[in-house]
């Protein structure tokens, strides 16, 4: 196919809501956009294991520990589905890890915040995974087939994460005054970073145009954020938690909540490497990666010997 045909074929598929598949020809910018987005998504899943892994040995019951282990294992699995999807675009796993370690590839900003108390594990599941679900549900219809299929699988598994987090918060809100205070404190610290997970306001998203035209992105940052707020505020009220936003107000006309100003200075500071845990997260990942090298080498040597 010549270039004109390639573009025409690609455009035809996008316009008719047909998925683009790995063997299909696609514009180079589409391919690069997807590699950046999917690898960032994969890195987020994997880095997201760290704040929770921190609590495995201190989970308050065997039940809580089993659940937390299963959840963290899921996050690892989600990372692997996504790395696989990205690999179909012609980037290797080695390259993606290298980009993560060099800082060229980003991961979700939210994981640069620490999980200080057990209530944070509740807040992460409820708010962070809740926000992730809202985003991922819309991505189930993204135009690139392998990415969309990974999202379907991830969404099926992710709803357990959100529920277990909400259950932790609900139980703490039925507990002692100290437990209630701990839950509210976690809510106060995680609410705003969770809203930031959806990214800048639509008016400040310079690259969204292509992503919409290519149907990689189906809903805007602000639409998704609104959806998350409207669902979550109700859940907070049911268990007696206060949303730490004095300007939060139901808007009858738009049938949704209006919220206060998001601190984008903080968002920029953290994304540029100066959040509470940026260094720790990356140091840990690099160290684990290096310390695991002998295992991969041994496995490769064994396979060679067997063949």
């Amino acid at each position: 196919m010549n270039t004109v045909d390639v573009i025409a074929d690609f455009t035809h598929k996008i316009e008719n809501d047909l998925n683009i598949e790995p063997k299909d020809q696609m514009p180079e910018k589409y391919r690069l956009h997807l590699i950046r987005q999917i690898s960032q998504h994969a890195h987020s899943e994997v880095i997201g294991m760290q704040p929770e892994g921190n609590w495995i040995t201190r989970a308050p019951s065997l039940r809580a520990k089993q659940i937390l282990l299963a959840k963290i294992q899921d996050e690892g699995g989600h990372g692997l589905y996504l790395y696989s999807a990205a690999e179909t675009l012609g980037i290797s796993r080695e390259e993606m890890l290298e980009q993560l370690h060099s800082g060229k590839a980003k991961y979700s900003n939210i994981f640069n915040y620490p999980a200080l108390t057990w209530a944070d594990i509740g807040a992460i599941g409820w708010l962070v995974d809740g926000a992730a679900i809202v985003n991922q549900v819309s991505l189930q219809r993204t135009s690139y087939g392998p990415y969309a299929r990974a999202m379907v699988r991830i969404c099926k598994e992710e709803s357990f994460h959100q529920r277990q987090g909400y259950e932790i918060m609900a139980n703490m809100m039925k507990g002692t005054e100290a437990q209630k205070a701990m839950a509210q404190d976690a809510m106060n610290r995680w609410w705003w970073p969770s809203l930031m997970m959806f990214g800048p306001h639509d008016s400040d998203s310079p690259h969204a145009g292509d992503a919409f035209a290519w149907k990689i992105k189906r809903k805007s940052n602000d639409e998704l954020r609104q959806k998350f707020i409207d669902k979550t505020v109700q859940q907070a009220e049911v268990i007696g938690l206060t949303v730490p936003d004095p300007e939060l107000k139901w808007n009858e006309a738009k049938e949704g909540y209006d919220h206060g100003e998001i601190n984008w200075e903080e968002f920029k500071r953290v994304i540029n490497g100066n959040g509470p845990c940026n260094k720790q997260r990356m140091t840990h990942h690099i160290q684990m990666h290096q310390e695991g090298a002998w295992v991969r080498e041994a496995a490769a040597a064994y396979a060679k010997q067997q063949s």
């Binding site: 696989s84 690999e87 990974a150 699988r153 064994y302």
Partner: peptide, 11 residues
């Protein structure tokens, strides 16, 4: 279902 990385068929 997708793909995995491994050194041999058992893995």
């Amino acid at each position: 279902a997708g793909s995995v990385h491994a050194s041999d068929s058992n893995m």
